[in-house]
Design a protein around this nucleic acid. Structure first.
Lengths: 128, 128
DNA sequence: CTGAATCCTCCCGGATACTG
DNA sequence: CAGTATCCGGGAGGATTCAG
């Protein structure tokens, strides 16, 4: 295992490389939402519970810089910004989907039925 | 996205769940080495560059507790301990392999030929 | 509405010393 | 040989305030 240093970042293996790009708490929730459609900044902020404004901005900026996400700014008042997946981002979502399925398996092994929990949550939301 | 709390750990999605199990700097390098054979503690320590004794112990302990790794202690003097993959661990390595291949792709896109770099390193080692 | 700029907290992982 | 125990720094991410 060598020391691989690129752009002043040290990483030890290809998986590490992926996790430096897609890891952290917020990249995945954002990419996951973008998988089907374009989202506005505020929509994302409302939909992703607990994300701070700082982390949403930072996450989107990094995803854009790494070529996973496309940012479109409309010169309107008030301003509108839309985010969508690039081709590279679409590929990343495939990987995330794979990882997600494995996650669901692992959770099931521990007796956690994630999808049932999600439905519960959705119902609560509706009741409000 | 609900707040899912299990064993006092909060996580936001199934991918997060996986990364809580396999994430961090050292779980993957360890599991990767165990994929083909059993390793002793000291062998792992020698082979994984930069890993501290603390992190190796901690990593192995967590992997064992999560059921990915089997620990076998031989009551000899000096003591001998061997680590191997469980069935669950073998499944995890499949996921890691998938992730690793994606990592290699990403690196190639950025003009990084990881496998060539590895061969360079191997040659250097031999020369010494 | 879509950010930028600061300050602060927590915890992962490193360094070092000790043990059965 | 295979660990424990302790102390410590840095960076990810939260809270708050300001701006175009």
């Amino acid at each position: 295992m060598p020391d691989v240093i690129i752009n002043k970042e040290v990483f030890y293996n290809p998986v590490d490389f992926v996790l430096k790009k897609l890891g952290g708490t917020w990249k995945i929730p954002v990419l996951w939402r973008l998988r089907k459609k374009t989202w506005r900044y505020t929509e994302l902020q409302k939909d992703i519970a607990h994300i701070s404004q700082k982390m949403l901005t930072q996450t989107l900026k990094e995803l854009e810089a790494d070529g996973f996400v496309l940012k479109k700014v409309y010169a309107e008042v008030p301003p509108r910004t839309e985010y969508s997946l690039t081709e590279k981002g679409t590929k990343a979502v495939e990987v995330i989907t794979y990882l997600r399925n494995y996650g669901l398996e692992l959770m099931k092994e521990e007796g956690i039925d994630y999808e049932a929990m999600m439905q519960e949550e959705a119902k609560k939301k509706k009741d409000k």
